[in-house]
Design a binder for these strands. Structure first.
Lengths: 195, 195
DNA sequence: ACCTGAACACCGTTCAAGT
DNA sequence: ACCTGAACACCGTTCAAGT
């Protein structure tokens, strides 16, 4: 006779997420997760291949949330939308906090979900800098955003100045730089070509 | 009688570094390190408080190297120097590869070495955008660089375009954006202020 | 002073046995 | 079908004992 299931994939993911949010990924053990859902550790292997698969499930959930967060920032004027997405991304990262590193943990498998999450950013850049430059522009912007929030969540900004101001300054600068580089309208103020 | 030391701090750090370079930080065990230097694992505790202290020692070595790499890029024209530092940073990160995450792993302790490593970048930005803006400018640039190399080392750039081109595009864009934002000479091309 | 083996409390994971 | 206890091969770390 089949005993009723004591837990579920969703419950396990939620428990793992809560533990990571509180103590970080490194501190997550399957035994803790199992205890949190009222089961013994080996039972988790009924629903997940291994620890990595459980982390991948958390990762997927976060990516889906990110997609929603960015999609909500599609405004009429694309430059405004871009800035709004940047700020929304940072706010999302702050909300995740110790969960944030999981958002980027590429388990080796390239995920279509990751591309989908960034789709609103890509289309906004398409209209703003043109298809020819939207990919490098997107990479520049995401690199800045990922780098900035990683550094602030790691407390890597050690000097005194306001991190808030630095983000506003940086986001504005990156958007300006990326827009200026997309069109060949005006020559760059300073030539930084290889020598 | 004191038996002669079988190993040394430097040898242990080198062994740890080699293992991390080959298999990543997560795969580093003290037992492997001990075996590599011809000793039993508990002996490592004679020279390092714990695993974290060993990782911190590797981290310090990497930071010192980074300082040298950036200092070597101080050129006559500051905008060129900035671009050169950006490219040198990326090349250094590629050389480190699986060791790179350790460069940023803030063990909680704010290190003066980290500030020293970035000093050449800071002084270059001082002359380029002025003291009033050099701190946010430095944060913007380091965020971009750290984010970009993290993403490429993680294989997070999934789309088809050239990552090389994206870096050149991004570095130029960020430098241009940061310079344009430093002086209040000309108004930004697009207003991205909060709404 | 330095190194060792034995031990402790943990891991992730497998698997036969229960219901 | 789902869950469990026991077991395996690992961890990091401590410590008494050797030289």
């Amino acid at each position: 006779m089949a005993p009723p299931a004591k837990t579920s994939r969703a419950e396990i993911v939620a428990a793992a997420r809560a533990i990571i949010a509180e103590r970080g990924v490194a501190a997550l053990s399957l035994q803790q997760v199992a205890a949190a859902v009222g089961v013994q550790a080996p039972s988790l292997y009924k629903r997940f291949d291994d620890r990595a698969a459980l982390l991948a499930a958390v990762h997927d959930a976060l990516l889906e949330e990110l997609a929603g967060v960015l999609a909500a920032q599609t405004l009429a004027r694309p430059a405004q939308a871009l800035a709004a997405m940047g700020r929304a991304y940072r706010a999302f990262a702050h909300r995740l906090d110790r969960l944030y590193p999981l958002l980027f943990a590429s388990g080796g498998t390239p995920s279509p979900a990751a591309l989908a999450a960034l789709a609103p950013l890509m289309t906004t850049l398409d209209t703003l800098v043109g298809r020819a430059h939207s990919l490098p522009a997107a990479r520049t912007l995401t690199a800045f955003l990922h780098g900035f929030v990683t550094m602030e969540l790691n407390a890597s900004f050690q000097m005194a100045g306001s991190v808030e101001d630095a983000f506003d300054f940086g986001l504005t600068a990156v958007i300006r730089g990326v827009i200026g580089g997309g069109a060949d309208a005006d020559a760059p103020a300073v030539d930084v070509a290889r020598e």
